[in-house]
Design a protein around this nucleic acid. Sequence first.
DNA 1: CGGTGATAGGTAAACGTTTACTTAACGGAC
DNA 2: GTCCGTTAAGTAAACGTTTACCTATCACCG
Lengths: 342, 342
Amino acid sequence: MPNRRYVTLKDVAERANTSVATASYVLNGGKGRYVTDELRRSVESAARELNYVRSALASGLKGRQRGVIAVTVPQFSNVFFTRLVLSVEEVALEHGYLVTVNNTFDDPERETKVVESLIQQRVDGVILIPSKQSERNYENLQRMGITTVVAERPVLDAVYDYVLVDNFEAAYSLTNHLLERGHTEIAFFTWDAENVSLRERQSGYRAALQEHGIPYRPEYVREIAFTIENGRRVTEEFLQKRSKCTALIYGYHIFAEGGIPVLQRAGVRIPEDLSVAVIGDPDWLPLCDPALTHVTLPSAEVGTEAARMLFDRILDSDNYPSVRRVLIPGTLVEGNSVKKLN
Amino acid sequence: MPNRRYVTLKDVAERANTSVATASYVLNGGKGRYVTDELRRSVESAARELNYVRSALASGLKGRQRGVIAVTVPQFSNVFFTRLVLSVEEVALEHGYLVTVNNTFDDPERETKVVESLIQQRVDGVILIPSKQSERNYENLQRMGITTVVAERPVLDAVYDYVLVDNFEAAYSLTNHLLERGHTEIAFFTWDAENVSLRERQSGYRAALQEHGIPYRPEYVREIAFTIENGRRVTEEFLQKRSKCTALIYGYHIFAEGGIPVLQRAGVRIPEDLSVAVIGDPDWLPLCDPALTHVTLPSAEVGTEAARMLFDRILDSDNYPSVRRVLIPGTLVEGNSVKKLN
DNA sequence: CGGTGATAGGTAAACGTTTACTTAACGGAC
DNA sequence: GTCCGTTAAGTAAACGTTTACCTATCACCG
């Protein structure tokens, strides 16, 4: 059973008493060639009987198109990425493409390996959800002429097609929401990545404060790496400090996942003792009591849009439009986790 | 920029003033051929300067080995599968293989498409986490001589290599735990799939009851499709019926994800009014208050074991051992969600 | 009856590798 | 001086498709 030889076009042609050329034309829908119905049927049934499956290797070698696009994902376990991937698959399936998903573990080295592998595989396109320091990898893809769209997180200082969540707006509107309800001392936990995404959320937070004439206090802001554990840790530190803050924004849902149990166990009542808001809408959100005020992140939309852009480029690379950049805003959803201060 | 021609071995050979054959030998680590150090260096630097990347298409066409394995996953959003995939990637990376992950949406048609695509791509191996009715797809892979290991869920009535969670044991030990604490009226919500997995969990539940001399009541058991929404629905129905049950087992964590918020909103106190236990250990478990008694599902271990089995077969298909089947047990973790009835 | 356009299908040259086969030079053993 | 083993590297035949190019028959027109 192992190492069985694959059925080839030649086998099919022989069984149908014709040439490989004709067999190939027939099995590709018979364009550009006249074939009698009889021969056509003969080829088709031969293929069926032999369980012929075209080799994408040989086909891709000649025909340039592989029928595969790839998505690189920093963290499989993060719903935002899985939602994004899901909607990419939706679009890809419409075009008859296979999607391969690859985990980069938010690790530049891993990402490099994955990207090298994708180049080797000569995939038709890549949707890159970058980890930190993805510039090199992005450039490599570009140099190889592999169509690439960057999604969800930006790559620093590069010219490219991208689709991003509007991070500025998300942080801005949530901060604004708290300010309007009388909060002025607002803690903000966010991601420490050295990229635009971070700056945007932070900028949104600051912009809202500024508009309301509230001073920005660096000691209220924590920048931490992207793990649940860190969310737990900084929340514990926050409690120990007995900060004057009346409100807390988890700038990444993943920090809330670690932090909220800490608050609960410490007996902090939400929103009586502390108002809490989150950027992001993970699956466990409906499990929270009280319901958390949050901004949804439109990952599915980002995925759909990124895939559309990618296929526009792949299928029609001649009239190459200039760089396209899209920002998709989230939506503020009000829960019961924010107290109104008079 | 689009449609750029790839750098080929021929380009490298020309730049190094040698033949493609020699270039190929050098870039493959130079086995089976004598090459002077000078020429070797010359080829290597030519490859570097031209940014040569071997085409996995051409290479796979000739050399039989692609360096790619695939994992088919029913639901991306389910942590159990993402954990499994993660550990598969770990093993694959050790062997220098790329892992492509494909979502089947728990839909037989999609799965068929994905599997066809994988066969077209001539992947070296597949770890199949089956959806319902995967027999045909499994058989197709087998017929094509593609090494396949089934993981996490079994395929009905087939002879194959598999690695499964010990579902019988999981349900048995959890039911037993409740019985030992005096519960006799125990509701059990489980998956309605027509496959062995279901029967196993159900069997475990029944076996435990029987051992304790408690009659099995069909009206306590609900078999439902695998969605959060269904968990919500059956929990609501359960509450409306004002069942005599003192305990409830969510036979799939995903049902608990829908059901527990229902209990909370209805003011049901856990464990005072109702004891609750879950099979599975999703990410949101630590968020629950009180801590839920549950059985962990060893997905990571399943993934590792499945990948090991796969590579054993791929790398050493000559001495083909007989079918291998592995069951991996979970662990019961006690929380505060089960009340002791004297 | 020769020319032409439509119909039908075979031949063979790519695509980029890998690898079996060949050639060639050199040094030593007989 | 011939033979052989070692070192070094080129030639060309696969691998399984796609597709450009050719050939052949037929029908119809002038």
